[in-house]
């Protein structure tokens, strides 16, 4: 004990240096969780699960009281919409059959195949103000690995950055460190969808590096492109909300309204096929 007291300051410096080095070495590495991470995960993840379930239950109750007045009109509206969608669905399934037959004849693979997915729940969100990361309740136990892609039925949410035994860390596409290779579905123009702090809190993101000659417009659907080695192609990211030309006039960027409502996320789908791994194995 005497030793610790007489060398207090030196010990502090050494620990700080060790931590700083470890921070630099482990920065940005897609790693599997260590034993320490997993042990803590066993303690904290179940508790997070319970608290977030309870709080989201109360949140749902509160918002249902809010929304009660609009329910009737909304119900009528939705019923009408269901009818329209039903007929459209019938028409589209006919197209799908036709498409399958024709592509079978032509002997080409489906461009947008069905991906295997597992459902998962968000159990915790980053308690800081800078980034948008969260933990989900599935891990290596359910064959989840880093760089798997998170979606909802509406569109892209993000990707897994690290997985422990019963939990995984994930990064949303609104996070300022995230970048997704993307293209406009209508014109085929390529770009990169990036998170941006100034837009993040409004639930928006940015599509950069768009060619200045491209005919991308407000309302265009943006999907993931074939160029990405993490994200499979053809997943909806969102819709163009606004086009802004850079000061130099050579490039422009688009403000994207994601298809997913990031404020009310709870259940997600993980595409359980690691695209990056496949590339490397080839």
């Amino acid at each position: 004990m005497n030793f610790f007291h007489s060398y207090k300051r030196q010990i502090l410096y050494i620990v700080i240096v060790i931590l700083a080095v470890s921070a630099l070495v482990t920065a940005g590495r897609k790693r599997k969780a260590t034993v320490l991470d997993n042990t803590l995960g066993f303690v904290i993840t179940p508790a997070q699960n319970i608290v977030s379930t309870v709080s989201s239950w109360f949140g749902a109750r509160i918002s249902s009281i809010h929304d009660d007045t609009d329910l009737k009109s909304e119900n009528a509206e939705l019923k009408a919409q269901v009818e329209i969608l039903k007929s459209e669905n019938k028409r589209l399934s006919m197209y799908e059959e036709e498409n399958k037959k024709l592509s079978g004849l032509l002997n080409i693979a489906q461009k947008y195949p069905d991906y295997d997915t597992t459902g998962t729940d968000i159990i915790g969100k980053d308690p800081g103000n800078w980034y948008l990361t969260f933990t989900v309740d599935k891990g290596t136990k359910d064959a989840i690995a880093a760089n798997m892609v998170l979606t909802t039925a509406e569109g892209l949410v993000g990707r897994v950055t690290e997985s422990g035994y019963i939990y995984s860390k994930a990064q949303s596409i609104l996070d300022s460190r995230s970048s997704v290779s993307a293209m406009s579905l209508r014109t085929g123009d390529l770009g990169v969808v990036k998170g941006d702090y100034t837009l993040m809190n409004d639930g928006l993101c940015k599509m950069e590096y768009i060619d200045s000659d491209s005919e991308i417009m407000k309302g265009d659907e943006i999907v993931t492109s074939q160029l990405s080695d993490i994200y499979p192609p053809g997943i909806t990211i969102g819709y163009v909300k606004e086009i802004v030309r850079d000061d130099n006039g050579l490039t422009k960027y688009a403000v994207i309204q994601p298809a997913v409502d990031f404020k009310h996320l709870s259940t997600l789908l993980i595409i359980t096929k690691n695209f990056q791994k496949d590339e490397q194995q080839k």
Binding site: L12, V15, I16, I18, L19, A20, V21, S22, A23, L24, V25, T26, A27, G28, R29, L36, D37, L40, I44, G124, D126, P127, G128, Y131, T133, T135, T161, K169, R177
Partner: peptide, 24 residues
């Protein structure tokens, strides 16, 4: 150190980043 490490493990991208700030 403890608070920083917990944040690092569950939400950080590298181990030790928040721990240094917490310690200081």
């Amino acid at each position: 150190l403890g608070a920083g490490l917990l944040h690092d493990i569950f939400f950080g991208s590298s181990l030790g980043y928040y721990a240094v700030f917490g310690m200081v």
